[in-house]
Write a protein that binds this DNA or RNA. Sequence first.
DNA 1: CACCAGGCAAGTA
DNA 2: TACTTGCATGGT
Length: 222
Amino acid sequence: MSVLLEQAYQKMLTHFGKQNWWPGDSALEICVGAILTQNTNWGNVEKAIANLKQNNSLSFEALLSIPEEILSEHIRPSGYFRQKAKRLKGFVARVNEEFGDLSALRDLSSDRLREFLLSITGIGPETADSMVLYAFDRPSFVIDAYTKRILVRHQVMDEDADYYQLKDYFEAHLEEDVGLYNEYHALIVAVGKHYCKRSKPDCEHCPLNDFNGGPIFQSLTP
DNA sequence: CACCAGGCAAGTA
DNA sequence: TACTTGCATGGT
């Protein structure tokens, strides 16, 4: 466990407190949220999920049987609603055809689970890792745009680093622990939302920019 | 008004 | 392989 990553974690935790991700009452709700939040503000996703609950459509069976057009209307507030309706239908259809139910995915190893999810249209690396970590409670570190932006700003990663270079970096330096991965990614998102916007970053007040007088990740090498 | 949000797939050269 | 574009609502 890297001392600096641990200290960065403590800085974020002290500043923001526990994030208690993922907001959701079931594995299915978390998987649905993971698809709906793609390139989309979480507040809009909450409205979409509320609509699904109100229409009794947030269950595996309901999502299997609901017509795509009806589903798309329910999730409209989350944006990209036609595309996401297709992706949700495709997701539950694949799970149903190959495993019968979402709970059966728990019998898979983390790697097989991740590979299966990645084979589904509409589920890329970040969405797959979000499901593996937050819905299935396995230690798979999630990388998002904020994570990359922060590491590039702190000169840990090059701008052209890909998803797996970033993922491997965290998994190599952190203790392999579901709770730690869970909270770490959530805290990075909190930092990103508040201080690491693309057009107006506020590095001045960012908790990660006040470590021994400089950026906290700076002296860490990949 | 512009810009962005917890991405991904498909098309082009 | 390496870019580019479509997808779409809602908040700041």
